[in-house]
Design a binder for these strands. Sequence first.
DNA 1: GAACCATAATGGTCGTACCTTTTTTCAAAA
DNA 2: TTTTGAAAAAAGGTACGACCATTATGGTTC
Lengths: 262, 262
Amino acid sequence: MADVDFFIPAQVGRASEDVALQIEAAIIEGKIEPGKNLPSERELQGLFQTGRGVIREALRALKQKGLIEVRKGAKGGAFVKQMEVANASESLALFLKQNHIPPGQVIEFRESLDRTITTLAIARGTEAEKKGLLRKALKLEELLRQPTQDPACISELDRELNIDLAMMTGNPIFEWIMRAIQLGFSSYDYTLYDDPEYRTRTATNWTETAREILRGEPLRALGFSTQHYALLQKCIEEKNGDLLTGNALLEMEENREQQTAE
Amino acid sequence: MADVDFFIPAQVGRASEDVALQIEAAIIEGKIEPGKNLPSERELQGLFQTGRGVIREALRALKQKGLIEVRKGAKGGAFVKQMEVANASESLALFLKQNHIPPGQVIEFRESLDRTITTLAIARGTEAEKKGLLRKALKLEELLRQPTQDPACISELDRELNIDLAMMTGNPIFEWIMRAIQLGFSSYDYTLYDDPEYRTRTATNWTETAREILRGEPLRALGFSTQHYALLQKCIEEKNGDLLTGNALLEMEENREQQTAE
DNA sequence: GAACCATAATGGTCGTACCTTTTTTCAAAA
DNA sequence: TTTTGAAAAAAGGTACGACCATTATGGTTC
């Protein structure tokens, strides 16, 4: 167990938040390393001079945040977890769901992100990485030619391609964001891969993109990427036809004019 | 209070998670509308056939997720909240914080993000929003001319400008990520604002950018934005001079050649 | 009508007892 | 000596009951 001596008694009225903040700060600042565990609930109770319920509530909040993992039994306790991007994704997904964010906006974001990533990947990716990307793209096409098509496997490969590309930027932030968006978006796009046309065109687009990346042609690569997203956008619109019909577009335009006139 | 009759007693062993899941499901499915409140803790205790501590732990987790808000006193209780983007950002920010990233990479990401956001903001922001942006930028310059400069206040205004710009894209995902980045890496910025040159040039860059946005000149706006980030990059490099000296650059280049040769 | 106080509703805290799960220990059996 | 298995210990999970703090409401008094 980690030796701790930097916790101070909590104020009443919001004790559990106080406790949670102190522990969180300790974790963020690295005073407790990932893998180590906090003192037991009963010990923390003593350290914070408070009831055990307060401690438990605080730990629950931290667990929810993904900062700790709680195991029971002897040698159990609260273990500091190396945070995974999945937590952030879950939170994003929840937000997207509750606020009814249309898929089109998610796609828009993905496209913009992808353009930057592609450019950087061309500039910084090693020859080996670029070849690997092309190989994986070809494998995707290969998979699609087979009679038994497993949609889960295909979409997984698509995801991997995106991640690989993001990693080639050499900047982990792109990878994380890509992961977060994919996880958050996954609730939407399962159905997409049911469409055979979408599947095949996605694959060919990937190989074309990978080829241009290998050749070091940013503009051509971006062109294929753009095509891909345009297709994605179109498929989504067809699925829920309520979006962006001609009339809706005109209405939006009128609203804009009104706003501008103010 | 919302009438509920769809909660079933919780299983032991992980009762609080069970409870949290049931309540979360009820909220997501819209069985309880935003603004309404859940039954009181003591009533839920009865509905779920469990102890009050279990209920409280479950509510803590939901509160942490941003799904509910808890008010005390008479007519208090757990109120269903419309989830805000800020909440989702916090989660990503936490992740970014735990994985410390060199400032240069953060800046690179921010710059790429900013370019997209600026382009979209010009296309979609209303006239009023654009004027508001310019006003706020001018206010920032104004603040800097005063003798008593409050760094906290200034960096806060800078943050607001970034958020405002992100909101003008009309796509909440940009706002999500902008907030997350700012929360996650705010620690870097604080020290930057100590440098008077950086402060003033940041402000003038903002007004120039805002002006070009208002005039609808994407390329010119992006130009100022680029300048800003170049300055930022330079300041950071000066602070920790270990980055990108001439020799380091040459070394990197040699490494690249080695890798490519493999 | 305004200020004030009593009351009730509700979340927040504390303490204790007991249950369940997991690890460790240690002694009996093979 | 090794294996096995029961008991003990450590830790989280649950239940209950009491009390505190905060807030809204309604009645009382001036």
